[in-house]
Design a protein around this nucleic acid. Structure first.
Length: 511
RNA sequence: GCUCGGUUCGUCUAGCUGGCCCAGGACGUGAGAUUUUCAUUCUCAAAAUCGCGGGUUCGAAUCCCGCACCGAGUACCA
């Protein structure tokens, strides 16, 4: 009997959420929506020392921007709250006690320095110290110490942790939805701390207790958790919760674009693409890490990019909306190996999504840039320019650079273009074109006939030279849409003004 | 070191129940077409001896074994 689908995204508020985490959230979301299940946001803040103010807010804002919605969570509440582990602190204690009572865990008094010394000692013999069934008898804990001394130490307030007592010689199999059965021997696993001396549970305890009490059906998380999955399976067993243990799916890692290794926070700005969904100002260092949103990526594009990094629909379709992703998503098509992020393809996705935007919407993105350049233009004009130019763009941020000449006459002229196109006698030609513009009715067809057919072709002039010079005069360089279209958009007076000024500034050239 | 996981064009990947694969698509790259320029668009092309070596089989990217390499984990961090 399958239980209702309930999945959670459970980040730690230790900094900005990086895109690997975003992808994990996305996959959870797609799975939940597809199965009519619930999506829960739980904050795992059991490490007080790594808490970063603002991180939780950042996570919520980022996922909201991307359209990844929650049904329950720290920001919206729900029937299984509280959803912040620090707010659930009192309940973990009893679960740790239960484990001790049942012989699945024990108290350990070893000081951090003592453990460190032990590790050094082993290291000098080229071995690795592990707190496990072989070594725990040599350590200071409730298994090695007499009962009355354990009592005494606890009563005197000596700090202690609770460790899991891993049974010896046991094969533990984790069934992973992506990788199949993964089996490990308990002898290789260490007695993980479940409950810290500061009164907080560790990830392992809190995670299992919360997933159980929140009735989570599927745990979809990063591959870095696979090695500790056997511990988690054992904990479900120790608590007697095997029947309702969630299904596990460990996602492949996101790798850095060059070389090897896991994508890290530093890579982004170094390699020219964001590692974070939103800009992040580090409250301590004041350092800024750039985000997709501020770089001009559309949220739907980011979702699409991330969805396809480690999963595919099994067809050749690559542009997929959230609705389509929800419909098509399946765990079977998640790949096992890590994926490298590809900046060029990300740009292409963004380009595709930008093309789907209406001219109006692109104009909205353009307005702030125009304002920044002190441009005032009619809404109709801005919309028209956007419609004409959008296919050339990957990002809205490129709008000003590719469209500025629609709003501002050139102040300088590209020297290379002058050299190539502005040949002797050009001022005469330009004056002639001004004359045509002034006398011929200002209509596309009429101007085309007058300038192209009659003047240039009729006089057997070089089409490339004349038209490009005109372009140079109007734009300042040799880029842009169809010349006459451009003239029509700019209008008669503005065009003439620009050509006059070019004649004046560039002047006549010799050979 | 140990444990676990992974390994198809430069990158993301299709392929998983062996023959339709001398390996398909996409991004990027190159060439051509279109254009008065740039870009767009369109067409075409190059690009993986399927990590390596064995085996099973009439036949293997697909199954089995070994090796190599890469990654993750190995904290009172998650």
């Amino acid at each position: 009997m399958e239980r209702p689908v309930r999945v959670r995204f459970a980040p730690s508020p230790t900094g900005p959420l990086h895109i690997g985490g975003v992808r994990t959230a996305l996959y959870n979301y797609l799975f939940a929506r597809q199965n009519g299940g619930k999506m829960i946001l739980r904050i795992e803040d059991t490490d007080q020392t790594r808490f970063v103010p603002g991180a939780e807010q950042y996570i919520i804002e980022a996922l909201t921007w991307l359209g990844i919605e929650f049904d329950e969570g720290v920001h919206i509440g729900g029937p299984f709250g509280p959803y912040r582990q620090s707010d659930r602190k009192p309940m973990y204690r009893e679960y740790a006690d239960q484990l001790i009572r049942d012989g699945w865990a024990y108290y350990a008094f070893d000081k951090p320095e003592a453990l460190e010394a032990k590790r050094k000692e082993f290291e000098s013999q080229k071995k690795t110290f592990q707190y496990d069934c072989n070594t725990r008898s040599e350590m200071e804990n409730s298994l090695s110490l007499p009962e009355d001394e354990v009592q005494r130490r606890i009563e005197s307030g000596e700090p202690y942790v609770v460790r899991f007592k891993f049974p010896a010689h046991t094969e533990i199999t984790v069934h992973d939805l992506i990788r199949g059965d993964v089996t490990m021997n308990s002898d290789l696993l260490d007695d993980k701390v479940l409950f810290k001396s500061d009164g907080m549970p560790t990830y392992h305890l809190a995670n299992i207790v919360d997933d159980h009490t929140m009735e989570i059906s599927h745990v979809i998380r990063g591959e870095e958790w696979l090695p500790s999955a056997p511990l988690h399976v054992m904990l479900y067993k120790a608590f007697g919760w095997e029947d309702t243990m969630p299904h596990f799916a460990h996602l492949p890692l996101l790798l850095k674009p060059e070389g090897n290794g896991k994508l890290s926070k530093r890579d982004g700005d170094r390699l020219g693409f964001p590692v974070f969904p939103l800009d992040w100002h580090d409250p301590k260092s004041g350092e800024l890490s750039s985000g997709y949103r501020e770089k001009g990526y559309m949220p739907a594009a980011v979702v699409n990019i991330l969805a396809l990094l480690g999963w595919n629909p099994g067809t050749e379709q690559e542009i997929l909306s959230m609705e389509e992703l929800i419909k098509l998503f399946n765990i079977e098509h998640i790949s096992k190996s890590g994926a490298k992020f590809n900046v060029e393809k990300a740009k292409w996705f963004n380009h595709e999504y930008l093309q789907m935007e209406s001219d109006e919407a692109i104009a909205d993105m353009f307005e702030p840039q125009l304002k920044a350049h002190n441009i005032t233009a009619s809404r109709d004009y801005v919309v028209k320019v956007c419609g004409m130019m959008k296919e050339r763009l990957n990002f809205p941020s490129e709008l000003w650079d590719t469209c500025c000449y629609f709003f501002e006459a050139p102040t300088e002229y590209d020297p290379a273009a002058i050299k190539k196109r502005w040949k002797p006698g050009m001022t005469t030609h330009m004056n002639k074109i001004i004359e045509i513009l002034e006398t011929v009715p200002f209509e596309y067809e009429k101007l085309h006939t007058a300038i192209l057919d009659e003047y240039i072709v009729g006089n057997q002039l070089n089409m490339g030279q004349i038209m490009n010079s005109l372009r140079l005069a109007v734009v300042g360089k040799t880029v842009g849409p169809d010349m006459l279209t451009l003239v029509m958009v700019l209008g008669k007076d503005e065009t003439i003004k620009r050509v006059r000024r070019a004649i004046e500034v560039i002047g006549e050239v010799e050979n």
